[in-house]
């Protein structure tokens, strides 16, 4: 095991963490402002990936594809908000869960209808393909490196948006007091649609970026959605900082666990058992982490409000 291998895994974990953050940030924003649990958030991830793949294939430009992923996911988000989600804010969580679960069926099956069951593949644009040389003589795929940077930029942008802009003020006001913000004359419906669309766009972008290094297929958003939930549980609900720290923690723990645990078990058991035990444990690692956080601090690491 070499240092470069570990650094590579660290970077992979970081990259995974930032993508989880894009998902978790949207979810936690939507919950914070509208009080809605949205199971269909993974669908926007999928829609972003498909939009990117389809448009990139049609236009030949990855960048147009990426823009399309943002636009398509935001549009789908806004449309769903207006048509369905809006009617759910005043309902209990059970109705929200059922309706958004049903929306997953609609989105997944709809996508399968249009694109079929076979996965699509995206090609990394030329000038981002190949490796980047990092200090210490480490080669790392440039595109993955770019994803880390994009994630970082978006995280900073999101913080600025919430801290500095008029929209951010409204979002924060909406999180603390829904009645007051309506009384202030803010068009609350427009605000909700906007927040929902932003959350969807972030998910769509994450889907397109991850879809580029993996594959684009129906149902791709669901495992990520559940991981994003784990991120929110660990980080604490309604906290963007918590979501960022926790997303990176989860990304690193998952990636490094899968890499290191089988190796670690190999030192004291035979290698096929070690591989089995190690990889089984690695697949559960972040959930064990979540259980630990719940046990020690039920509000999550950065959660202030009681659940």
């Amino acid at each position: 095991m070499t240092v470069s291998l570990i650094v590579e895994q660290l970077l992979n974990g970081l990259q995974f963490g930032f993508m989880l953050f894009l998902m978790a940030a949207g979810l936690t924003l939507i919950f914070g402002v509208m009080g809605l649990i949205n199971l269909a958030h993974g669908s926007f991830y999928m829609i972003g990936a498909f939009a990117c793949a389809a448009v990139a294939a049609a236009t030949g430009s990855y960048w147009v594809g990426l823009a399309a992923s943002l636009a398509a996911a935001a549009a789908a988000g806004a449309l769903v908000e207006v048509a369905v989600i809006r009617r759910l804010y005043r309902r209990d969580h059970l109705d929200q869960v059922l309706a958004t679960f049903a929306l997953i069926l609609v989105f997944s099956e709809g996508t399968r209808w249009v694109f079929g069951s076979f996965p699509l593949y995206l090609t990394v644009p030329d000038f981002l393909s190949g490796p980047v040389a990092l200090p210490g003589g480490i080669d790392y795929p440039l595109f993955r490196f770019a994803i880390i940077l994009i994630g970082l930029v978006i995280a900073v942008g999101l913080f600025l948006l919430i801290a500095r802009t008029r929209l951010g003020i409204r979002i924060r006001a909406g999180e603390s007091d829904r009645e007051m913000i309506a009384a202030l004359g803010v068009d609350i419906r427009k605000l909700y649609t906007t927040v929902f669309a932003i959350g969807a766009a972030l998910a769509g972008l994450a889907g397109a970026l991850v879809g580029t290094i993996q594959s684009v297929q129906v149902g791709m958003g669901e495992p990520v959605l559940i991981l994003a939930f784990v991120v929110i549980i660990i980080g604490g609900l309604g906290s963007i900082v918590g979501a960022l720290v926790s997303a990176i923690l989860v990304g690193l723990a998952d990636t490094l666990g899968r890499f290191l645990l089988p190796v670690a078990f190999d030192t004291f058991m035979d290698s096929s058992t070690a591989n089995n035990v190690g990889s089984a444990l690695a697949s559960m690692l972040i959930y064990i982490l979540m259980a630990l956080v719940l046990f020690l601090r039920p509000t999550g690491l950065f959660g202030t409000r009681a659940h």
Partner: peptide, 18 residues
């Protein structure tokens, strides 16, 4: 059950996924 509401939903979902 150390939590309620939306957290309970997410946590039961996550443990089942585990």
């Amino acid at each position: 059950l150390r939590t309620t509401g939306v957290f309970f939903i997410m946590i039961t979902l996550a443990f089942a996924q585990m």
